[in-house]
Amino acid sequence: MSVLVVVRGNSASGKSTAALAVQQRFARGACLVVPQDVVRRQMLREPDTAGAANIELLEHIAIFGLARGLVVIVEGILNAGRYGSMLERLTAAADHALHYCFDLTFEETVTRHIGSSRAADFSPEQMAEWYHGWQPLSFADEIRIDASWGPEAIVDRIHRDILACGERPESAVE
């Protein structure tokens, strides 16, 4: 059984932190995190534009994990206009698909960024260029995560929802 989890939202909202924390709740090799930033910015070093190679590569990596029956967490800004078609194909390819989207104000994302370990990586001015507000996907009911959700509540919810997709004996941490 394959489970796709999509965690989207603006820069510095907590997507990567949540995805990695959920992964830690599963045994080694049971959960694959596919971070948009790593694929786009590090592996390919390309801008975030329509039709960019990272979109196809993200899809291939996720399909690989789904075919192996893993929990696959695709996380990133994942702008609906550029990544929506790919996410729709992934959703159709999974036995179960769960969608979460951080819906934070620009001011909240800047506040979170300033307190993060990546604060020196990019400026609030750069973040303003990337900020797109709420962009719901037309094909999925996304759980909307606002500023009232604490980190542990986010991780608990995602983990609980994954487990509800079916009994996964490998969900215990080693």
Rank of each mutant, 00 (worst) to 15 (best):
F102S: 01
A164G: 12
S123C: 11
Q24P: 04
G14F: 12
R89G: 08
D37R: 12
F102K: 00
A92H: 03
C165I: 13
Q135N: 05
L163H: 08
Q36R: 05
I145V: 03
F64A: 15
V34R: 04
P35M: 07
S13R: 05
G29I: 13
N79G: 09
W134I: 04
A164Q: 14
V39W: 12
A172N: 14
F26R: 01
E142C: 10
R25F: 10
I114G: 04
Q24A: 11
G150E: 02
S11V: 10
E108S: 15
E129H: 13
A18F: 01
V110W: 15
V39K: 10
D161Y: 06
G51F: 15
T17S: 05
I61W: 08
A80E: 04
V33F: 04
D37E: 14
R8P: 04
Q24F: 12
S138V: 12
D146V: 09
P35A: 10
E107H: 01
S138Y: 02
G115E: 15
V6Y: 02
R82T: 02
L4N: 05
H132Q: 07
I73Q: 10
V155H: 03
A164E: 15
T111Y: 14
H96C: 06
L58Q: 00
E167S: 12
D161W: 05
A92K: 02
E125R: 07
A67C: 10
A164N: 13
W134L: 05
V155D: 02
A147I: 13
V71W: 00
R41A: 13
R89H: 07
E75Q: 09
I158P: 01
S148E: 06
I73F: 08
S116W: 13
R157I: 07
E174G: 12
A92T: 03
S148Y: 04
L137C: 07
W130T: 01
P151A: 14
H60D: 07
R168Y: 04
D141L: 09
P151I: 09
V6A: 07
A19S: 14
G14L: 07
C165L: 13
G69P: 09
T109V: 11
D146T: 13
T17K: 05
P169H: 14
L20Y: 12
L58F: 00
G81H: 14
I145Y: 01
Q42F: 10
A147P: 10
V74W: 01
G115V: 13
V33Y: 02
E56R: 12
G9R: 01
L32Q: 00
R112A: 05
